[in-house]
């Protein structure tokens, strides 16, 4: 699913339908659990600066750090394993065995090793999105047809030149896809990890509001988290349209 695959009016329709049916539900049931989205937005508008912003910034920082770390290590490793057969033989079995470990279950171990602070939150994101990124990039590199390399080999191109000129530009879409998956996943992980050892972050904010039976705040938190994800998605989509023009020409 990509932004540019549909007209922008369709997105507005989509938004209106979700918004409208929620409002309808709220009006009809008139229960304290189904708050009207309009009230929530107004509440958000009034309290965002004073209460929510700092939590959103904390979550954003953890997401950015976790994803950057995963890309910084995952992309080079994916390229190396995809391009060099020896690297593939060395790393792919390891990837294969560590991929299915439920990383969320490692949270206690990570907390024991890295404490309750920021490091644990970033490392949990890293642990979970690192493996799919490596595998995704590796497979994308392996999919590059051999005849693209052959003229380069006949020129005596060095591996670094091949990686710079052919592989890296070619895997940009795969990197963006990794980013897209990474963001969605990172946000859900934060929701979980931010309930331990911190009083900042959207995960903490939402669960805290829930426990205090402050549904208005709880919904505001959920909306902010969704908007955060949405903005990231839109940014990646725009990037893709600009950088990977060739991709939409299939």
């Amino acid at each position: 699913m990509r932004l540019h695959a549909y007209k922008s009016v369709h997105y507005i329709y989509g938004l209106l339908i979700i918004f409208g049916s929620w409002q309808l539900l709220a009006v009809m049931t008139d229960s304290p659990i189904w708050l009207s989205p309009w009230d929530i937005l107004m509440h958000l508008y009034e309290t965002f600066h004073s209460t929510i912003a700092v939590h959103a910034l904390y979550s954003l920082r953890r997401t950015v750090l976790g994803i950057s770390l995963s890309l910084a290590i995952g992309v080079p490793l994916g390229v190396l394993t995809g391009y060099f057969k020896k690297m593939d033989r060395l790393f792919s079995p390891m990837l294969y065995f560590s991929y299915p470990i439920p990383k969320m279950a490692l949270l206690p171990v990570v907390m024991l090793l890295f404490g309750l602070g920021e490091a644990t939150k970033v490392i949990m994101i890293f642990l979970i999105i690192f493996f799919p990124i490596v595998v995704n990039i590796r497979d994308e590199v392996k999919n590059i047809p051999g005849e693209v390399y052959e003229p380069m080999y006949s020129l005596g191109a060095k591996p670094l030149q091949v990686i710079n000129e052919i592989i890296l530009p070619g895997i940009v879409p795969a990197i963006l896809t990794s980013l897209r998956i990474g963001i969605g996943t990172a946000i859900s992980i934060l929701f979980f990890t931010e309930n331990f050892g911190t009083v900042y972050g959207m995960g903490y904010f939402i669960m805290d509001a829930w426990m205090r039976v402050n549904y208005m705040q709880m919904y505001s938190g959920i909306v902010v988290l969704s908007i955060l994800g949405l903005i990231c998605f839109i940014m990646i989509d725009c990037l893709e349209v600009f950088i990977c023009r060739w991709k939409s020409l299939r």
Binding site: P145, E147, V148, E150, P151, M152, S154, L155, G156, A157, Q161, E165, I166, P169, G170, V172, C244, W246, K247
Partner: peptide, 27 residues
């Protein structure tokens, strides 16, 4: 050596100009 493989070997994620210049650039 200039080599054109069986299916032209152009890189589909680089523009025509980038493709043309690549060989000379590498050499």
């Amino acid at each position: 050596i200039g080599f054109i493989p069986q299916n032209d070997g152009l890189i589909k994620w680089r523009t025509v100009e980038q493709n043309i210049r690549l060989s000379a650039k590498i050499k």
